[in-house]
Design a protein around this nucleic acid. Structure first.
Lengths: 199, 199
DNA sequence: GGTCATCTAACGAACATTCGTTAGGCAAAG
DNA sequence: CTTTGCCTAACGAATGTTCGTTAGATGACC
């Protein structure tokens, strides 16, 4: 991959994020690159190659991250915390790509879309593994594994919609808060001694 | 609103959901309505009026629902449960519109987009109110209100991505599971007597 | 050290197609 | 007799892409 190709890809990422894939024209990208539209075809076969590269780069990052976690950490709580941290780390390190990854993958052609979904399923299976592990260990409630995985991933993924680099919370703080939320929930459990102490 | 207009709107909802707003052409909609493209302009000013109607209809439904909840229910746990149930109820009753509502609102023109965001903020404020109430009552942990609201809403909204009418879980079951998840979390709290009993 | 082939990156022009939209007419229904 | 719903025809603009070509750089071979 040429340096120039990387530059163009980066511009595409930014434009796709801002306006969406279908609403971004080759001419938009060319203008951003200060080049004639036709010149882009010296670097890419076509518009979809850009989307493809962005989506699958991200998919690879996520898959690598979950494999790492599931290879190393034993305890389910620990594994979940690490998975959350990695997930948020990727989202916040590549905010443009993450947005495109989540919104525009469906504009891939049918074949590549199927590939993409397969990779996404693989990732989800990694999360399900963690939850199953936690239940088997006895450290998690006996929840619906499939449902919980979807719910967890949704709360993680939405971060990309509101995260700003100059925001109030750092990526690690976001990950910590999410982990707490997922593990403990909202409801306050009064300490066992509560009644006695305050009486 | 004419009956025919409603029909066309329904077709648009379905197509927008399937292919996205920008990738759906007036000609696609006309074909679905078995009518020439130009004929649609007897019913609508233009393509954006369709998107506009879909998005703001949904916004109205959500706002009405949260107002109901916050007018009637006292207890924060009860209010949150009802808000979740209503939210999931809307998403699952209008799955096409819900998908468009979540994905394509950003293709509204700048003015309407601002209006839309204002309504969304209003809804979020309703959820924040519930959480603040729960903290004040002492029934919720002292969480970051803004962050928690976003996280809760994200886990609710993602349902639209995977919900199928013929799926395993009914809307009410989904809502119950989500409420449990939000309130209690994953981690099993061992009963206070656990150590003693098993020793 | 000169020349020859190859590669990168870009150009301007044109391509066929699709886009949202408008104008004007026509037939049926109230 | 006016309104409604649809028609045919066409508009100008934008779409992704292909074409043949060129300037400049790089490195190998004689």
């Amino acid at each position: 991959m040429t340096e120039r190709k990387k530059e163009i890809l980066e511009l595409a990422r930014s434009l796709f994020r801002e306006k969406g894939y279908t609403s971004t024209s080759i001419r938009d990208i060319a203008a951003a690159a200060q080049v004639e539209p036709a010149s882009l075809y010296s670097h890419f076969k076509g518009k979809e190659e850009l989307l493809d590269a962005i989506c699958f780069d991200m998919a690879d990052r996520f898959l690598l991250a979950i494999k790492e976690v599931n290879d190393i950490y034993f305890d389910a709580v620990q594994r979940l915390a690490m998975a959350v941290k990695n997930h948020i780390g990727i989202l916040t390190s590549y905010p443009d790509a993450a947005m495109v990854f989540q919104h525009d993958w469906r504009f891939l052609n049918d074949e590549r879309k199927a590939d993409f979904i397969a990779l996404r399923d693989q990732y989800e299976e990694g999360i399900r593994d963690i939850i199953r592990g936690g239940i088997d260990e006895g450290s998690f409630n006996e929840v619906d594994v499939k449902f919980s995985t979807l719910t967890i991933l949704s709360s993680l993924n939405w971060v990309v919609e509101w995260y700003r680099e100059d925001g109030r919370l750092s990526p690690d703080e976001i990950a910590e808060n999410l982990t707490k939320f997922i593990l403990i929930g909202l409801k306050k459990e009064l300490p066992p001694s509560y009644d006695i102490v305050t009486d």
